[in-house]
Design a binder for these strands. Structure first.
Lengths: 144, 144
DNA sequence: ACTGCAGTTGCGAATGCCTCGCAATAAGAC
DNA sequence: GTCTTATTGCGAGGCATTCGCAACTGCAGT
């Protein structure tokens, strides 16, 4: 079993879940992708390795992984399919260019600053910060 | 015609749209509500004043208002209906308590700070910032 | 290894939110 | 008031996601 498979098995096992083919396939796809994918896109890649895996199972695996804190689901817009990505320990957020449509990841202390501000000044204890910024990326601003 | 109705008519007129019964009803509901509502909730209130107004028209009115910058649509979670509220000039964001479910509005310069940071350091020109913070509100933190 | 039994899966139907197409209606310019 | 065309109501449709259930399969115990 590969290293990632072992990691997944441990995480699942600790929570009383089993390591199954569909789960491993979904995990491999998400873990090896640099960007965020929709459930449908993940299902497509999963089917390349095992065509019997059902879309429902992809959804179920993703929900479970999210519950376990292994992946993150993000809404990039109303009426758009959710996007999924590995949960990174560093706080990050998304920048979406309204011109080219590209979605960049961005890490920084902005998120932590927000948390501190809310906690200190408003007694609100943040557990998750979802930040999505729409605008024009540097490249598109240059070419326009 | 009431003051809000005149305001709406002006905004619509400038963009080449008509002031209609359904639009006015939707506007009244959104403008007189302090919180954000789902399209379905808005439709319910609209039907109290005019039962012939269709849900589609509510959606169409809301989309139009959003395009004109009169209202804002926000996604409070994956697979949840969008919530709609009057567009305020001051930048605001949402705090959602995972314990009591309440969604608070919050205004502050956080959003502006984010915009400045991105513009100065990363050449990303922000047009809209969506910030949703999940966590425990002061009240829930006190009673737990 | 073999067995038993939850936890999982595949499948298809169902749900929820939202959008569309189209004929009928009505706003507002003249 | 008339005319033009934006807008509406209605029902059907679309898309992402979830559900119910019988069949299947990890894996713990033997």
């Amino acid at each position: 079993m590969s290293r990632v498979a072992t990691e997944l098995k441990t995480a699942l096992g600790e929570a009383g879940h089993r390591l199954t083919g569909p789960r491993l396939a979904v995990w491999d796809v998400v873990a090896s992708s640099r960007s965020h994918l929709t459930a449908e896109e993940i299902a497509e890649s999963v089917r390349d390795r095992d065509p019997t895996v059902n879309l429902s199972s992809v959804y179920r695996s993703l929900s479970l992984f999210a519950e376990l804190g292994l992946v993150r689901e993000s809404n990039l817009g109303a009426n758009e399919a959710s996007h999924w990505e590995l949960a990174h320990s560093d706080e990050s957020f998304h920048l979406r260019c309204t011109s080219c449509g590209k979605v960049e990841h961005h890490t920084g202390d902005l998120v932590t600053q927000v948390e501190h501000h809310l906690s200190h000044h408003h007694g609100f204890h943040a557990s998750r910060v979802e930040l999505l910024v729409h605008g024009t990326c540097a490249e598109c601003a240059a070419t326009s």
